[in-house]
Design a protein around this nucleic acid. Structure first.
Ligand SMILES: NC(=O)c1ccc[n+]([C@@H]2O[C@H](COP(=O)([O-])OP(=O)(O)OC[C@H]3O[C@@H](n4cnc5c(N)ncnc54)[C@H](O)[C@@H]3O)[C@@H](O)[C@H]2O)c1
Ligand SMILES: NC(=O)c1ccc[n+]([C@@H]2O[C@H](COP(=O)([O-])OP(=O)(O)OC[C@H]3O[C@@H](n4cnc5c(N)ncnc54)[C@H](O)[C@@H]3O)[C@@H](O)[C@H]2O)c1
Lengths: 219, 219
DNA sequence: GTAACGCTGTGAATAACATCACAACAGAGA
DNA sequence: TCTCTGTTGTGATGTTATTCACAGCGTTAC
């Protein structure tokens, strides 16, 4: 399976398609089919884009019936995560947000388990929260190595984010999901995805106002 | 101030610039200056893009000194939120994530206060959490009207998201920040920003794996 | 068998976004 | 005053993402 130069937008949508289809599968036959425009409607996109995305991962459908749901799920699954792959995740910062993430991902996404948490708060050390043990950040190397962790989540205050990032990268983590509102400096081979909730909320506030005041379409 | 057809990416970056500059201002003179490339370094972008963004909102700098920080802050502020504007926010879903959001935005962002929360859990009704009172979703119209709320945050389970959305839109909310992993159907004049943490985490897992296994640049 | 239908797969067109590159310019220094 | 420096502002250009549009095809209906 060749997997060169694929944009992160496409990866995001593939993950979305998979989740939508998974939610659909219980109430459908194994060999149910779906049209590109149906899938598009479910995820808020266009049929053409769905078809192109599936084309880029080399999956093809049938002009009269659409795409076989089960096959497509397998295909996306194989593409996004090679079956034998380790997918353990580490969390840094067991505060309000970190706890919410633990609660959510522990019981909703067993394919991406958060297997270790790190915090500086001595109160948390060695406690188990949502089935996940808290370690000191000094233990990063050891724990990341032991669990063979490749993915990290940064949910510490902005001031601590770069330090925690450096520790994670040193320990061998190559992908980061960052909630802290700072731009992380990492080596070129480390992938960083930022989620900036404050920025998103301000965007919403801006466009909400436009709508109500001027009724003009801003985009 | 004319404000037509501006992309949401630009709005997002302007909000980012503002936050970076605000963090900088305590340790600088009121009349400190900053170059486009300095701001770019702080937010992980390029000087050219910073200049273009500032150009699109009509702010100009000085070829020898750069941009006046204080003036720029004011300019962005005026652009993003007209000074007299109401910016009250409503939260739907006071679960793990909702509570984290309340804790964060209540003390960090007084300019975008969450003034009301909604939940179906009877235990929560009329309780005050992080200074924010919980209402029943039946009271949506009344409360949203009373506080003149325009912005809503959806942090309820996916199955309840569309129902809560409809109530919010009916009550007059015109901008939504949606954390539920579903595509919300809203009238064309309502702005929706989705934050899909699961999708983001899967993206990270995908690219993390690429880096470690094949060392190829995928983007 | 065959005609008609409506979807897929995809090159081409378009749109959105970001970068390049440089003229114009403000200030520093002599 | 004049030159030199390094930045701004911005048209031109490049890049990436999405949509258009339609040939080709599998299926169904008759
Ligand atoms: N909670 C939200 O809704 C929200 C919204 C937007 C952004 N954020 C961002 O997410 C991050 C976390 O937010 P939060 O609300 O959970 O904060 P929080 O203060 O509740 O939790 C932070 C946790 O990080 C720990 N910590 C501090 N320094 C550390 C270090 N060097 N190494 C390891 N752990 C350390 C603290 O002990 C604490 O447990 C922050 O950067 C915040 O800006 C949060
Ligand atoms: N917590 C996370 O880290 C996380 C991560 C990714 C996505 N999400 C999404 O965010 C949303 C909230 O997650 P959570 O972890 O806070 O869930 P949660 O179960 O902890 O909280 C959900 C809250 O919504 C309330 N609720 C249920 N139905 C409601 C309705 N019709 N009207 C109003 N309130 C209602 C519940 O009483 C509960 O308080 C979910 O859609 C989840 O998929 C959360």
């Amino acid at each position: 399976m060749l997997r060169i130069a694929i944009s992160d937008k496409v990866i995001g949508r593939l993950s979305l398609y998979r989740r939508i289809l998974e939610r659909r599968i219980p109430k459908s036959h194994m060999d149910d089919h779906i049209f590109s425009h149906e899938l598009a409607a479910l995820c808020g996109g266009t049929g053409a884009l769905v078809r192109r995305d599936l084309m880029t991962i080399g999956f093809s459908g049938n002009p009269k019936k659409g795409y076989r749901v089960k096959e497509l799920l397998n295909w996306i699954g194989n593409y996004l995560n090679a079956p034998e792959e380790e997918r353990n995740v580490a969390l840094a910062g067991v505060g309000n947000l970190g706890r919410a993430l633990l609660a959510h991902f522990t019981y909703r996404r067993p394919k991406l388990p958060i297997v270790a948490a790190f915090d500086t708060d001595a109160q948390l050390l060695n406690r188990v929260i949502q089935g996940c043990r808290c370690f000191s950040v000094q233990q990063m190397d050891q724990v990341v190595g032991q669990f063979n962790i490749r993915v990290g989540i940064i949910a510490v205050p902005a001031a601590a984010a770069q330090d925690v990032t450096d520790r994670m990268v040193n320990a061998g983590i190559t992908g980061l999901l960052n909630f802290a509102p700072v731009s992380l400096r990492v080596p070129a081979d480390v992938f960083v995805e930022n989620i900036d909730m404050t920025m998103s909320l301000e965007k919403v506030a801006f466009f909400a106002r436009l709508n109500v005041k001027e009724k003009e379409v801003a985009r």
